[in-house]
């Protein structure tokens, strides 16, 4: 039978290599990595994030000063050779505080978002795929949680369990997954009517396999975009809670807290705002570049259009 359909150009691909790589099961992610490596902006973002994470982890050993060390005689001083980022009004080294702040902010950002991501995607997929009564009950639970005033929820948690960083992660994660669940559910609802899901079902695949092999990979685009939006909002949420006295307390710090303090003395000591602000902005930029890159890399169709 003649093949009149447009032939694909495969001449430059080594067939052996092709077959070998076909045998690896996780080809979507392997392909995504190959494609991501071609996206320079995303790689820069990834490199910066890795760098910041490593610095945060190593902070207790590499920080130039202790985070609680004060030098009241020094007061707020501009950046100098001893204090690269300057000092705050209590004479604490700002570089040290930014480094310790990064530990807190990155941890909150990644852990709380990770919690939101896992719960939200699973919840949304199951609700959207099951449909009917299961869907109704699951989404009403989401609605109820949405309706709870967030602040009261957190204050109650704090009152009952005492102030605890882990609790903070939990509280923020518990709020952020709701939106994720809704986004994923609506995606899944439109996906599950498509024929390839029906085809998977008629092949005799188990429900779980359909969910994790066919549904979730196809929701990744919006999920990644929303995740890159969630991380900064979580960091800012932490700053807000700390500002209210519900999160981190000085002398411990976070970027949000430092920025809040910096704003108060912006006119006299601008470096107190500039450096933590820079740290946060660079992180968010890197996240966005990486997120865009990931979204394109995970969509096989995006590479050629």
């Amino acid at each position: 039978m003649a093949m009149t359909e447009s032939p694909l150009d495969t001449s430059n691909i080594d067939q052996e290599q092709l077959l070998a790589s076909a045998e690896k099961g996780t080809s979507l992610w392997a392909d995504a990595w190959v494609r991501l490596r071609k996206n320079r902006l995303a790689l820069v973002g990834l490199a910066i994030l890795v760098f910041l994470t490593v610095v945060s982890i190593l902070t207790p050993w590499i920080a130039p000063y202790g985070y609680e060390v004060q030098d009241l005689a020094l007061g707020a001083s501009a950046p100098s050779r001893e204090h690269w980022f300057g000092t705050d009004i209590f004479g604490r080294d700002l570089l040290t505080r930014v480094m310790y702040g990064g530990r807190m902010s990155l941890a909150v950002g990644f852990v709380a978002t990770g919690v939101a991501l896992v719960i939200g995607v699973l919840w949304g997929t199951v609700a959207g795929y099951a449909g009917g009564r299961v869907d109704a009950v699951m989404m009403r639970i989401v609605d109820i949680l949405y309706a709870l005033p967030f602040m009261i929820f957190i204050i109650l948690l704090m009152v009952v369990f005492g102030r605890n960083i882990l609790l903070l992660f939990l509280a923020i994660g518990a709020v952020e997954w709701l939106t994720m669940a809704r986004i994923v559910r609506s995606q899944v609802q439109s996906l599950r009517k498509q024929e390839f899901i029906e085809a998977a079902y008629s092949l005799g695949l188990s429900r779980w396999r359909i969910i994790h092999r066919h549904l979730i990979p196809n929701t990744l685009g919006p999920v990644i975009v929303y995740t890159t939006l969630t991380i900064p909002s979580v960091m800012l949420l932490e700053a807000f809670l700390s500002f209210l006295g519900l999160g981190v307390q000085p002398p411990a710090s976070s970027w949000g807290l430092l920025i809040n303090n910096g704003v108060e003395t912006m006119e006299e000591y601008p470096w107190l705002l500039i450096f933590p602000g820079l740290a946060l902005s660079i992180t968010l930029f890197s996240l966005n570049f990486l997120g865009d890159g990931l979204r394109d890399a995970l969509d096989p169709r995006a590479s050629k259009d």
Partner: peptide
Amino acid sequence: YASLNPRMT
């Protein structure tokens, strides 16, 4: 166009 999973080879 709809019966194949777009993210599977």
